[in-house]
Simulated scan of single mutants.
Amino acid sequence: MKEKNVSRITMIHLLGLQTPHSITFLIFFLFLLIYCVTICGNLLIITLVSYSKSLHSPMYFFLSQLSLSDILLVTDILPNTLHTVLMKGIIISFSDCITQFYFFAVSEGLECLLLTVMCYDRYVAICKPLHYTLLMNVQLCWLMIITCWVLSLLVGLILTLTVSQLDFCGPNIVNHFFCDLDPILQLSCSDVPNVLLEVTLMNVIIVITPFFIIIVSYVYIIITIFKIPSITGRQKVFSTCSSHLTVVCIYYGTMVCVYLVPSKGQSWDITKFLSLLYTVVTPLINPIIYSLRNKDLKKAVANIMNHCLQLHMSK
């Protein structure tokens, strides 16, 4: 057990990215631009799905929920990150740090579950097309979404309550750009094996099991695609799930590098860079990937632009 200091930690010194002073403003405006583009891109997806009748299908309903999760994630991470870039680190209260960790845990868990639900939707559409309308009905879609939200909120709450009950005696320096679990646990002077066991169990529920389901689903999807006789038919069917597969590979690939690869010998700079990929870059590219590779979304954007243009010309 770590030796306890006299006083309990009440403030956290968040070091941030520690960028060179000469490019501080460049990094700041880059992250600010990423934040604005991410919010606007994901809000556009949500708006298109809400108001375009052609997008009222399970796939786009799940996509709008993924966009909502991305907005929650970047809003939790980037404002503090922007502050740390300008100030070369900031001082925040311990309660603020724990709160940030809670919303981070919720949004990450929600992302994993939503990607799994979206994968199931593609599995039914490709492997059981004749039963798609029957299986993917409105009631089931809402049930899956509510389950994803409730489960992610519950898991985030369990982890946050467990961590907050530990004794934190210092030092109070977090060498990261946000309050992630590992940097927080390094500040604890309590024994953490039980916490790590609980974290592992939660990861099995919210990360590993969904990832296993995605892998199995894509095995069946790929087998079904190879059974299609024509190359054109294969390409057309594969295009319906290529965007989702790209997002899954980027998201889970970086998470595996950060959380499953042993951190010993891995510098904090590498950890921060990999963390940037799934906390900042993935929410940015999700709407871009889905928009660029989806004809329905492009058509919906064109229809809205034409409608706005006609309203403007009629005035």
Score class of each variant (00 low, 15 high):
Leu135Arg: 14
Leu135Gln: 11
Asn137Tyr: 04
Asn137Leu: 01
Val138Gln: 15
Gln139Glu: 12
Leu140Tyr: 07
Leu140Arg: 14
Cys141Ile: 04
Ile145Val: 15
Ile145Thr: 04
Val150His: 15
Leu151Trp: 13
Ser152Phe: 06
Leu157Val: 05
Ile158Val: 15
Leu159Gln: 08
Thr162Phe: 01
Thr162Val: 08
Val163Cys: 01
Val163Gln: 01
Gln165Arg: 11
Leu166Thr: 01
Leu166Cys: 08
Leu166Lys: 07
Phe168Asp: 02
Cys169Pro: 03
Cys169Asn: 08
Gly170Thr: 04
Asn172Gly: 04
Asn172Ala: 07
Asn172Phe: 01
Ile173Pro: 03
Val174Pro: 01
His176Ile: 00
His176Glu: 14
Phe177Ile: 13
Phe178Ile: 03
Phe178Pro: 01
Phe178Met: 13
Leu181Gly: 02
Leu181Val: 09
Asp182Ser: 08
Leu185Cys: 05
Ser188Ala: 10
Cys189Tyr: 12
Ser190Trp: 08
Ser190Ala: 12
Val192His: 11
Val192Ser: 14
Val192Ile: 15
Pro193Glu: 09
Leu197Gly: 01
Leu197Gln: 00
Glu198Tyr: 00
Thr200Asn: 09
Leu201Arg: 10
Leu201Trp: 06
Leu201Val: 05
Met202Gln: 12
Met202Ile: 10
Asn203Glu: 07
Val204Trp: 00
Val204Thr: 09
Val204Asp: 00
Ile205Arg: 10
Ile206Pro: 02
Val207Ile: 07
Ile208Gly: 09
Ile208Thr: 10
Ile208Glu: 05
Ile208Lys: 02
Thr209Leu: 15
Pro210Ala: 15
Phe211Cys: 06
Phe211Asp: 02
Phe212Asp: 07
Ile213Arg: 01
Ile214Asp: 04
Ile215Gln: 04
Ile215Asp: 03
Val216Ala: 11
Tyr218Gly: 11
Tyr220Thr: 10
Ile221His: 11
Ile222Glu: 01
Ile225Asp: 03
Ile225Pro: 08
Ile228Ser: 12
Ile228Ala: 09
Ser230Cys: 04
Ser230Pro: 02
Ser230Gly: 00
Ile231Tyr: 00
Ile231Glu: 01
Thr232His: 12
Gly233Asn: 10
Arg234Ser: 02
Arg234Cys: 02
Arg234Phe: 06
Lys236Cys: 13
Val237Cys: 10
Thr240Cys: 10
Cys241Gly: 12
Ser242His: 14
Ser243Thr: 15
His244Gln: 09
Leu245Cys: 09
Thr246Ala: 14
Thr246Glu: 05
Val248Pro: 01
Ile250Asp: 05
Ile250Leu: 13
Ile250Pro: 04
Ile250Lys: 05
Tyr251Val: 07
Tyr252His: 09
Gly253His: 11
Met255Phe: 04
Met255Ala: 08
Val256His: 00
Cys257His: 10
Val261Asp: 03
